[in-house]
Computed example of a mutant assay.
Amino acid sequence: MTDIVLRDADPVLVDRIKRVADARGWTLPRAMQYLLEQGLHMYEGDGSVRFDNSEADVLQAAIAALEQVPDDPGYAAIGRVSRTDPA
């Protein structure tokens, strides 16, 4: 495998990469590899976000829970479109 060398990088960028590595428990080279791979996927792809199965399940459960919030004139109306019957 080719070594990745990052020269003259912005210190803020390097700090962000280190934070990703620390948060995931990865070595710095592993974090660089992952970030490059993901960046290329986003750049080459259509830019859409894809979730793995566990993330999709959690998101679906959260949406289902939010859909169960009872109607009221305040909080539950946030983000909802009122439907009026055209008849």
Rank of each mutant, 00 (worst) to 15 (best):
S82H: 12
I78P: 00
M42R: 08
L35E: 05
V81I: 08
L59K: 07
K18A: 15
V69P: 01
E67H: 09
I17D: 11
G39P: 00
I4D: 11
A56H: 02
S54D: 08
R24K: 13
V14K: 14
L40N: 13
D15A: 15
A65I: 06
D52I: 06
A65H: 03
T27L: 10
F51C: 03
D57E: 07
R24N: 11
I4K: 12
Q33L: 13
G45Y: 00
L28V: 14
A56S: 04
V5Q: 10
T84W: 03
R80C: 01
G25P: 07
G45L: 02
G74Q: 03
E44Q: 06
M1D: 14
L36S: 09
A21W: 05
R19A: 15
D57T: 07
V5I: 12
R19Q: 15
V12M: 12
R30D: 11
T84D: 07
I63P: 00
L28I: 14
Y43A: 13
V49S: 07
V58Q: 02
V20M: 11
L28R: 12
A9T: 11
P29Q: 08
D10G: 02
M32E: 08
P86G: 00
W26D: 09
M42V: 08
T2K: 12
Y34L: 14
D85C: 05
D72K: 03
M42N: 05
R7V: 10
R50H: 07
P73N: 06
R30M: 09
G45M: 02
S48G: 03
R7N: 11
R50I: 02
V5S: 09
Y43D: 10
A21T: 09
P11Y: 08
A23G: 13
R19W: 10
Q60W: 06
K18M: 15
D72T: 03
A77C: 02
M32F: 07
G39C: 06
L35W: 05
T27P: 04
A31K: 01
G47N: 06
S54C: 05
G45V: 00
R24A: 13
L28Y: 14
Y34Q: 14
A31T: 07
V49Q: 08
M32P: 04
V14A: 15
Q60C: 06
M32N: 07
G74F: 04
P70R: 00
P86R: 01
R19H: 14
E37G: 10
S82W: 11
A31N: 08
D22A: 14
G45D: 05
R7D: 08
V12T: 15
E67K: 09
V14H: 13
A64P: 03
V49M: 08
Q33C: 10
T27F: 07
R24D: 12
T27W: 02
D3L: 11
L40C: 10
R19F: 12
L6M: 13
